[in-house]
């Protein structure tokens, strides 16, 4: 018989030491706290979407920057969690929940891709002292994970790293990534690593390694386009004046 999800009564068994670092399984995402200035769209009620659920080619991209010997990996990750939003480029606004970057917490994203609004979010899938991972919901431009980590290399230097394992969520995004989105995304993560390094007084280049893990398109997931957050955000933005007028009429 195949294994089913664990029943509640089994939770009393001895938990492995990684247990506290993982988010709990939820069928559908729920956003509990929304900062007043954030637009909460395309997250509530969506399922998570991992690197296997999307449409496009599956890429692993690893960005690294050397931070020298003056800071420990734990300190880097602590600061990274605290200032995650501040290290983003201006067009990429992240709104963490009040609890911050902790397992199971949501981070809303109000971004702009080449002038087009994208309102979405990510869930913190895993967080420990040396790394944290966020996972995308259905409709997000990518389907997969980003892991933000720091480690000490063989020379004793602390290295900060972002590793993404993701594919475009649907055919529209896949086309967008191939045309310009992929380069734009690489700029974003390079900016984040440069900002993190600048916080520690370091100005070094960011290295990038790209590996195509699965070159095939997953045509069975072509229907993901229905949840496309970019299209839905555009409709939301265009219909804003109508919603305002409707709101005034209802008063």
């Amino acid at each position: 018989m195949e294994q089913k999800p664990p029943a509640e009564e089994h939770t009393a068994q001895k938990q492995p030491r990684d247990a506290a670092y993982w988010a709990r399984h939820v069928e559908k995402l729920k956003v509990s706290e929304v900062p007043a200035e954030a637009i909460n769209l395309n997250v509530e009620g969506r399922r998570t979407a991992g690197a296997l659920q999307g449409f496009g080619q599956l890429w692993q991209k690893t960005y690294r920057i050397y931070l020298g010997t003056g800071v420990t990996p734990e300190e880097v990750v602590r600061v990274w969690k605290e200032k995650f939003s501040e290290f983003q480029p201006p067009q990429n606004r992240f709104y963490p929940s009040l609890a911050g970057v902790k397992p199971g917490e949501m981070l809303l994203i109000n971004a702009s891709m080449k002038g087009m609004p994208v309102y979405t979010g990510v869930i913190v899938l895993y967080a420990d002292e040396e790394c944290f991972t966020v996972m995308t919901p259905e409709g997000h431009p990518e389907s997969g994970w980003n892991t933000f980590s720091a480690y000490q290399n063989e020379e004793g230097h602390t290295v900060a790293q972002i590793q993404s394992l993701a594919r475009a969520n649907d055919p529209i995004y896949e086309m967008g990534f191939r045309l310009a989105g992929s380069t734009e995304q690489e700029r974003i993560w390079t900016h984040v690593l440069k900002s993190l390094a600048a916080h520690f007084g370091v100005d070094d280049p960011v290295s990038l390694e790209k590996v195509c893990v699965d070159p095939r398109l997953q045509w069975s997931n072509v229907g993901n386009v229905w949840n496309n957050a970019s299209v839905r955000s555009m409709i939301y933005a265009v219909s804003a004046p109508g919603r305002r007028i409707f709101g005034l009429l209802r008063r």
Binding site: P16, L125, M135
Partner: peptide
Amino acid sequence: GLSDHYVEIFNITRLSDFMSLFPDEES
């Protein structure tokens, strides 16, 4: 051979959509 905890991890990451999970090697 996954414990309940790791079955849950395979569910949240949706790896279980693509991998069948069994209690033991025999099954």
